[in-house]
Nucleic acid binder design. Structure first.
Lengths: 196, 196
DNA sequence: GTCTATATCCAGATAGAC
DNA sequence: GTCTATCTGGATATAGAC
């Protein structure tokens, strides 16, 4: 038995520290020295592992994309109906905003174009495409109202994403999972009091 | 008669140039020298007028807030019903995203906390509060479904804001005013095909 | 592979002539 | 008030010992 408690590998420590700092202060307000100090590694190690600051950001970008993809897959793999899939995904996103704040913030709140100009916009990445596909399929199967695909996706997930942004900005002061029921009812039933 | 065509005053030239550059590249990727060169003024003038780069950003912040407030006021001053007010505002926002892209981008898309840490988050500012108030009033008057105020505002405007973000990121390739009809129907009628 | 010490560059900001 | 030339700090990145 080599060891009972595995020490966090150095790469992970760097990545986690950088994620915290980037989300808290913004990429451009964090220096490599800040990461180096807070992660308790030398600056040489950072350059050895990631090649520089932008290398850290790129690694984080793909790490966070993977996490998002896992989140979406955890729902789609259940083969539920479209509406139920969307609801479970919304519930997960609201929860993760509280429990894994920085991952959600880096995925939904960071402006990657400003520090990773070569990467495609995150909204065009796999997990976000998958979210639009759920809605698309729901429209084809008659479960979701037919309309323009962009509008449908924005209407289904836009409210949740807006709440997440407001929560991350500190404008909403309560944990947002409490808003789940009201949110999904609004989304599916609409905000108009008149029923036709 | 002093002059027939007023030359753009130097302050405005600096502000407009900075707005363009900040939106295009991001605040931290623009140097004072970049602004200075593109605006055809000296660096000294910039420091005289705005005291520095952050001074430009702060002036822009309040300039853009004023523009947003004017936009909201142009609707609320008409004393329409809540739903009609929201619809007109959504229409305006979609249009302005095409015609005054940078103002909308700076208001809705920039992360001000990363370069103006002292300013309050823009979502807590007057025009955004006014948007929530329209929805709130609509709920009190029975025109809009009763629910949590944050959820209501997010449900009403979240879809539009999501479309605007996607458009600004270049993910949506068509002008978004064409999506207006589908968007408002989705918002008010809901995305569920089942009517109760 | 990891570290410290150092090099290099460029940004924001200022000084002072005009 | 506007300009050019200059200063200074701090950032990224590297060199080279261990």
């Amino acid at each position: 038995m080599k060891q009972t408690v595995a020490p966090e590998p150095i790469d992970r420590r760097i990545l986690n520290t950088a994620l915290d700092l980037f989300v808290e202060r913004g990429y451009h307000n964090v220096s490599v020295h800040d990461v180096q100090k807070q992660a308790n590694v030398s600056i040489g190690s950072i350059y050895n592992h990631f090649g520089g600051k932008e290398g850290i950001a790129k690694a984080l970008y793909y790490y966070v994309l993977n996490e998002m993809e896992a989140l979406v897959n955890s729902v789609t793999s259940k083969d539920l109906g479209a509406i139920e899939s969307c609801n479970q995904l919304i519930a997960l996103l609201l929860e993760q905003t509280e429990t894994h704040r920085n991952i959600i913030a880096f995925a939904l709140h960071a402006k990657h174009r400003e520090f990773l100009p070569e990467e495609p916009p995150i909204c065009s990445a796999v997990p976000f495409k998958a979210m639009r596909d759920i809605v698309q399929k729901g429209m084809e199967q008659g479960e979701i109202r037919q309309c323009d695909p962009w509008v449908a996706a924005a209407a289904v997930f836009g409210g949740a994403i807006r709440l997440i942004h407001l929560r991350l900005d500190g404008v909403i002061e309560q944990p947002i999972p409490t808003l789940y029921d009201a949110l999904v009812e609004s989304t599916w039933q609409g905000m108009d009091t008149k029923k036709e």
